[in-house]
Amino acid sequence: MSEQPRDNILELTGLTKRFGGLVAVDNVSLHIKRGEVFALIGPNGAGKTTLFNNVTGLFRPTSGNVLFDGRDITGFKPHQVARLGIARTFQNIRLFDYMSCLDNVRVGRHVRMKAKVWDSLFKLPRERREEERVTDEAMEVLRFVGIAKHANQYARNLAYGQQRRLEIARALATEPKLLLLDEPAAGFTPQEKVELMALVKKILNRGITVFLIEHDMKVVMGISERIVVLDHGEKIAEGSPEEVRNDTKVIEAYLGKSA
């Protein structure tokens, strides 16, 4: 653990989130290196999604800090976090149902667009040019995740797997430096899981760091370089897939103490 701070894209120090008496995330510190795939695992209710929500500004941490790209973003609003370069997907897919796939992705481009109200109101040439460019870029992203032919369909009409892809596409459209995937393989067939792993590799090749929550151990072990295990809000293990797999605390957490 002797990396220079600049090598870390995300650092959490002593992150704690309480809801009333319940401590959902308890003093968790971790750091994610630029360009790696980092996985967060743990039994149901371990506080994984809450941790995501604290990073993306949906919740304000009770205490502790979130450092992104060397900048303290603790307590930032979600849209500010997105602007700085963190994008995410949701555990229960949250697409814009009654918008086309293309528009879903174009919403993702929002944060990188410049058009002001006046530009749009009068459709000034620069707005027109930007729209054309953004449409091309959005199609490019749809192609990247492999659902371009559904561009004109309502998001709600896509098959489940395609919806997951669309959500990733939408997140990618914000040009993130760090992509948070919340159980991207949930409900996938083995074939789809293989495809997802390929997609994550492709995303990594674009220079985007990936931070994922996943239950499926095949996926986790297959793509992540480092893993943190959370149980009851606390970090109980950290390390490479092999180290984590052989950690007694982890085995206990998953199988129960009696094991």
Binding site: L58, H79, R88, L95, D97, Y98, H110, T174
Partner: peptide, 14 residues
């Protein structure tokens, strides 16, 4: 429209 469909997701998109 994004806000109309899902405000949380819209905020997460910046």
């Amino acid at each position: 429209m994004a806000i109309r469909e899902d405000e949380v997701a819209a905020a997460a998109m910046g």
